[in-house]
Each structure stands twice: as structure tokens, then as C-alpha cells.
Design a protein around this nucleic acid. Structure first.
Lengths: 375, 375
DNA sequence: CTGATTTAGTTCAGAAATTGTACTAAGTAG
DNA sequence: CTACTTAGTACAATTTCTGAACTAAATCAG
């Protein structure tokens, strides 16, 4: 139906935002004639639409943008219980959302998803045929084909062919992905990392995860394990970790580790924010904890910068604010540990992630597959 | 002259070795008819040749392989003084070699290269028009276009447009690259890493360098700095490093650091091998040194594995043997610091690199550019 | 206000790349 | 010796892309 060139155009606009035919011609390297026809075909299929015009000299040019209503994708996030199922448009906006109980029985869960699709899609008055695919995210390892869950401790899964099972129940092209990796995909398609060829995302939550974009593509790793920084050794001879080693980043800088340590030292805290407030009012325990965690995470990020030299590092978290001692120490640690020549050239950005964002991340995995021509 | 599809075929054969038309059809996704024509065109241009046939059932199939005499590339390695200039065939074999004094004056050096080309090419009885490009490697940072040397401490260069200067004198398409990165390219094209989509190369010499292939392409990094692991912090509060920080990998595991430390502790040693021998005969100083260096390098490699999950790690060095205490400790440290789930799945390989290999690396940068359609 | 100039985009015939179908080629299996 | 299998080629038909000539819609200069 669509040719490689069509997808190339869609990808370019997805990355760079609204673009004129003339600019597409020079950036993609096609003739004006070819572009004219291809653009019309994409408009006819409702995948592109003309938005505004821009004027310099000569005839004004028309901007082409993705038509948000031309394609929809379903995102299922199993990061939380209840799981979030969202219907997401072509530009990454949620148009409908349903929460359902998470089941660890794959068949049962697939059936539950299938059952709520009519309500999800119909409730938003979206035509069935516009829904092109589904992405499902979970905490765990996913194989190269994005079809099987190799291992998820939380769900108790090992080698579960989840994509196939869900496809059987929903008949939608389905892709599985690790949650941090999916978040990176949505940041690449819709968020802070639009138009970046390479960047690294850090997820700082109960655990710590990371994901890398390289050459405009998600780098999953030979065994799907790229970004497993939680178990980088940061404190040689440090605390024992649940993974079996000692001194892992996870034992120092994950939210679980920070809050556990706080409680163990008699500090009442439910969130990072609580500890930040305690530190601000002079609690030496809180200050010490934040110093230790921030410098550990900063050190780990500095390793990423020196190994991969990304265009940007995006730190995602669930705190309302992220401008306290932790973040300050972290940034100082990055500065201190990165080769002076490379120091300061890698922007560090922060972004709060809400429940719904995970579902957008899941959907974006399908969007990304679509843009790379899965159909 | 050649289309994208031609290059696709050349790349596939370059990566996978001799291949039949039938296999190319299924792997690249073209029709038999198209492949038949394209293969003939490439044979006519002397870029491919038919080698042996293989027989199963039905008509025997003919293997197509790169024709080593169809394309030549020149590699200039500025890693050593004298610099090595090599004429390398399409399959990575050196067919002629000249050493010339290295000059830090770019124009002078370019002229010196140009002067010896007739002898280099003529001496091997290669037709001028078969020489398709030149690669130049140096120790330092190189920009995204592989045209300018941003910074080389050894050569005392900053923002030198070396590719343009050399092109002016030689009229050959010219590409600059960092030495460790170039070595990775040649390992990808001709060596241990053929057919790997992603791998990491470590260069262990006077200094330490690294380079990564991801998605079948060299990952240079946003500022050309990917692989700068020499200045990863390995020993917090360790020795001061020439880069201005402390505890860098470079201060512990580079050959300079190891040999300096050995001398400082009264151990007579010119090479790693000397220290290995001392350790084997019981010198506690030597044993301690090798332990410290090996575990530091192992830790750094474990970070690479956990961050990037490559298909392989290739450790390159200039020692005759590399199976002593250093290597053993290093491998133990990798085992100990990699997440158990990922441990043991990443093969670690070793390869001795000689002077001439650097020149092949340099040439391979041009070969790689050619295979990706620079012409 | 008018015509020259500039840039965007379209049309359409022709060129280039690719495919489908029917063919030949060269072996193995029985 | 015949049937079967797989590799590879020939050629017309199709798809995709380009070049050149066109139309469209603005600015600029007087």
C-alpha cells in the first residue's frame, strides 16, 4: 500500500514537525514531481494534512503535518495495576483511556484487553480501520522481535509469547517493549527528543532503567539488555543487591533504596520530596542520603556520556519537582566525572512522567513500528 | 553509476562473505530477475566475481564474492612515526606499503602523501582508476563529517580541515577517523566482527580507547566522543589524571600507567609481558599491579556491556600473548560486575594489532564509506 | 498599479528500476 | 532414463522517479 518513500516522508515530518514539500524535496532527496504525487497520496489516505502556509519571497509554501486523526494506536501499560489502556492518535495525544485489572495470566489479560476495545475505540468515535496497531509495555526483558517477554520478575513471566497471544484475541499487529525503552520511543516521537538522532533516557523510579536511541533507532542490545544500568557497580564493596552482586546503582539511587535507607535511619518519608524538604530544613540524614544517591546517579550518567556521547540525557521521574539537592548533586557529579573536553556539551533535561505517559509510551512503540513500515 | 541496491548487495556480501544470488534474493528482498541483472552489472564492473559453486539439490548455485582487485583504498595511519601508508584491496589485504615521516604541518604531510602515491599504486601494478578513496587515522577527535580534526594532542592540532587539504593534493575522496574507531571499522569489514550488527572494541595500548558498532554502523557520538572510556572514573579518589580528574581508567589500566607504576615500585619492565613473567615467578608487586589494572578494565567493560549489551567485546592490544594474569583478572571482573542474567552471554575476544593493521583500519574507513555510497 | 522576479507546486511524457511469468540450465533421487 | 528440484536468465509489463515546461501566488521596484 505505502512505499518506503511514503514512510520516509512520514518519518521526517514526525521527527521534524510540519514541513513544506519544498523542504522535504531537499532533505529527502527526491524530485519535486515525485514529492508532489507522494504528498497527495498521503493526504488522500488522511495520514498527512496541510496546515498553515509560510511566506518569505515567492509563492507561499504549505506546511504538511501528520494528520492526528489519520492513524491511531493502542497502548497498554502493565507498569501499574490496574493496567492503563489508551487510544492514542498519530501525534501522541490520548483520545480515550480505560483502566483494567492487570492479570498475570496472558490469555486472560489478552481477552480482557480485547473486551474493552470496542468501548475504547467506539467511545472516542474513531473508525476501527484507523486503529493500526498495539504496543504493550512491561517491566522486564523483551526479545529482539518485540514479540516475546523473555523474563519479567514482577509478572512472574518467562518466555511468554505475549504479542502472538494478544494478536489472537484482538487481530491487531502487536509489539511488546520494556517500559523504559518505550518511554524513550515516545520521547523521540512526541517529546523532548524529537529530531534527535541519539539520546539516552534515564528512568528514575522504584527501580532505575535507561534506554538509548542511536542512529535514529532504539538500541535494544544483543539480548534486549541495553540500558540495564541499575546493576552497574557504583560502590565497589557496597551493599548487597537483590541481583546477587554488591554496590549496584540500584542499591543507592533507586527510590526504593533511598526511602528504605531513610526509614532505616529514622526519617519519615514517603516520597523523594519529603526527603528534599527534610534536607532543606537541615536534616543531616536527609542531606547525606541525597548526596550519596545523587552522586551515584551522576557517576552512572557520566559513564553513559563517555561511552555513548549522546546528544542529550533525559532524566524522567515521577516527582512533582526535581530541582532540589538530589538533582544539584547529580549534575555536579556529572560535571566532575565527565572528561573536561566533553563536559557541559551534553544537555541534561528532566521530565515528570505520569501514569498516562506510560500508556502513550506503549502506543508509541506501535507508532514507531508503523513509521518503519511494519504493515 | 551504482544504485542503492548495488551497494546493498555489496554490503551484504562484505558482511556475510560469499553468497549465492538465490540467498541474496531472499535476504535482501528483491526479485530473481532484478538480482540477476544487478549481479551481472557488478561483475562487469569487477566489483563482484563468481567463485565456487555449491551443490545441494537442483541446479548448483554460484557463490558471488567481492572481487579483491575491483576496488582499492589507501589507508594512512598517523598513529606511529613514521606514518604508514598502505594500498589495501577490496577484501582488506595490503598489496603495497610505504612508510613516510609524519609531519604535523597538514599541507606538508598531504603533499608527502601525494608524492608517494604513484610509487605506492604503480609499484603494485594497480590501475589508478581502481583506487577509490583514502582514509586517514589519527589519535584525537574527528568531526561528524569525518573531514576535520577537531583536536589532537599528539599532533598539536585543533580544527584542522585535513580531508579537504589532502583532497586538494591527491584528488581522492578522503575521510578522517579516530584510530580506535577505524580499527573497529576494519574489524567489522574484514575481521572478527564480520556480520555483527553491534559490538564494542577496546583498544589497550599506551592509552585506552573504545569504539562501538550499533545497528551496523559506527556510532561516533554527538561530538565524535563515543568510546572515550579512558576517562571513566573507576577509582573514586584515585590518582590524578592528565585530564584533570582523578581515578580515571587511564591512570590504572593503560600500558603507560602500568609500566610507570611498575618502574616506580622498582620492577624492571618494558612490556606487559615482562610484568606477566614477573608475576608468574611470584613477584607480589607484579601480581598486585596486574590485579589492579585487570579488574579496573574489567569493571569498565562491564559498564559497556550493561549500558550497550553488544554482541561481542573485542579487546585489541599489541602484546604477543594475552592470556596471562591480566586477562584472567579482567575476565573475572567482567563476570563479577555484569548482571548475572546477562553474564556469560557476551563473548570477549582478543586480537593482537600490528602497525600495518592500523593502516588497514584507515583504509577500511574509506571502504566503509564507499560501501555506504559516498560516490 | 503594473510588470519583473522569486519561490512553490503540478503536469505529463519519458527514463530507470523492479517484478511476474515463462523459460533454460544443471544437478539429484529413484 | 525420467521425474523432480533448485538456480539463474529473458523479456514484457508495471511501478517509481526524473526533467522540463508549466501554473500559482506571493514580493519587489518603479
Amino acid at each position: 500500500m505505502l512505499t518506503l518513500t511514503h514512510y520516509q516522508i512520514l518519518r521526517f515530518i514526525s521527527a521534524s514537525g510540519p514541513t513544506t514539500r519544498a523542504e522535504l524535496v531537499s532533505r529527502i532527496g527526491l524530485s519535486k514531481a515525485a514529492m508532489s504525487g507522494l504528498a497527495r497520496e498521503l493526504i488522500d489516505k488522511n495520514l498527512l494534512r496541510e496546515t498553515s502556509t509560510i511566506q518569505k519571497q515567492g509563492r507561499p509554501s504549505t506546511l504538511l503535518d501528520l494528520d492526528p486523526q489519520g492513524a491511531y494506536f493502542i497502548g497498554v501499560s502493565m507498569a501499574s495495576d490496574p493496567a492503563v489502556i489508551a487510544l492514542v492518535d498519530f501525534k501522541g495525544e490520548i483520545v480515550n483511556r480505560i483502566d483494567i485489572a492487570r492479570s498475570t495470566d496472558p490469555d486472560e489479560f489478552a481477552q480482557a484487553i480485547a473486551n474493552c476495545l470496542p468501548k475504547l475505540i467506539g467511545g472516542a468515535a474513531v473508525a476501527q480501520k484507523r486503529v493500526l496497531g498495539m504496543g504493550v509495555t512491561l517491566s522486564g526483558l523483551v526479545d529482539q522481535e518485540q514479540a516475546n517477554c523473555i523474563k519479567s520478575t514482577i509478572l512472574g513471566w518467562q518466555d511468554v509469547p505475549l504479542a502472538k497471544i494478544i494478536h489472537k484475541h484482538t487481530h491487531l499487529p502487536t509489539f511488546i517493549e520494556n517500559d523504559a525503552k518505550a518511554l524513550a520511543v515516545s520521547e523521540r516521537l512526541f517529546g523532548e527528543a524529537r529530531d534527535m538522532h541519539s539520546f539516552s533516557l534515564i528512568w528514575l523510579g522504584k527501580g532505575i532503567g535507561a534506554a538509548h536511541f542511536v542512529h535514529d533507532r532504539l538500541h535494544r542490545g544483543a539480548h534486549g539488555g541495553a540500558g540495564e544500568i541499575a546493576h552497574c557497580t557504583i560502590e565497589p564493596n557496597g551493599l548487597p543487591c537483590r541481583c546477587g552482586k554488591t554496590g549496584c546503582l540500584d542499591t543507592v539511587a533507586s527510590m526504593i533504596a533511598i526511602l528504605d535507607a531513610a526509614r532505616a535511619q529514622g526519617l519519615k518519608a514517603e516520597t523523594l520530596d519529603d526527603i528534599e524538604r527534610a534536607a532543606a530544613s537541615g536534616s543531616s540524614v536527609a542531606i547525606r542520603l541525597l548526596h550519596r544517591a545523587g552522586s551515584a546517579l551522576g557517576l552512572a550518567i557520566s559513564q553513559i556520556i563517555q561511552i555513548n556521547d549522546p546528544q542529550m540525557v533525559l532524566v524522567t521521574h515521577r516527582e512533582e519537582r526535581f530541582d532540589g539537592l538530589f538533582s544539584t548533586v547529580m549534575q555536579q557529579a556529572i560535571e566532575a566525572n565527565v572528561l573536561p573536553r566533553l563536559s557541559g556539551v551534553t544537555p541534561i533535561q528532566f521530565r515528570k512522567v505520569a501514569d498516562a505517559d506510560w500508556a502513550v509510551g506503549a502506543a508509541s512503540v506501535a507508532t514507531h513500528s508503523f513509521l518503519h513500515g511494519f504493515i
